[in-house]
Amino acid sequence: MDFIVQLAIYSAIASIAAVSLNYVVGFTGIMSISHASFYGIGAYGTALLLTKTGLSFVPALLLGVLITGLVAAFASVPILRLREDSLMLVSVGFALIIHSLMLNWQSLTNGPRGVKSIPRPEIFGISLTDKNFYLVLCLVLLVLTIIIFYKITKSPYGTVIKGIRENEEVMKNYGYNVSKYKHSVFVLGAIFAGLAGGLFASYIQYISPESFILLPSVFMLIMVILGGMGSIGGSIIGAILITVIPELMRFAGLPSSFAAESNQIVYGIILFALMYWRPQGLFGKYKI
């Protein structure tokens, strides 16, 4: 039924974002909290191109993704100079700055009023307004994402990155340009986040800066941590759980006077419990 299809679409989109974040955070060890910003830039890029120019879906999405990649390349320079908690903090700072730009660069983004009436895709003349077709589109792209990241992690390139995760200094001694590898990981991750964002924009048909503040980045991180750092399948499970569980809670029949807060408390408890009992997440190979 439609409700399940919609949840499936959101889950698929979240999965693309989570798998790409897993690549950056879980696999490579770069603790970035700015992933939702790239998701947002992809969303805005696609949305603005779809509504303000005559571009159709596929070129708009690709351009949106390209723009995200460029911003990520630019942002990665300062962000990747740091490690661990400092990196986390700087990525938070970056995320909040991007949010501020989305909110205040009114001539570009229409500010808090957001971008309305984003059209659903039309690919090769077929209109994809129907939810079921859109789900197929998302699933196809998700499978593509999984294949790409799987291949990368199993390749020699992936082995180098695993080495960087374990011990950067040693890799440097071996002569690897660690910095270049980290930059490429960061940008690739951001590109797929942008892809997810573009899909989101066209589905929900209205975006505003509100959708992309700090909390979505935290949710994405929770998805990856929950699912398991370094595990592609785990990230997908994490994405599905985090997308679907709050909606399932609607059926739990909690009196609405505290259902909303209880929902959030459950998140807090999940985070805490994960850190205590299973910091590597459900299927993870690496601990935080």
């Binding site: 039924m1 957001g114 209205y206 505003s208 909303a260």
Partner: peptide, 30 residues
Amino acid sequence: HCNGQAGSNAAQKLVNVDQVQLIMGAGCSD
């Protein structure tokens, strides 16, 4: 949750699962 995704899920659930004919809402423009 004053948020587009949650709002759309809420609406979808009410329309599909609970099969309402009328929804009172919403508040936040998102």
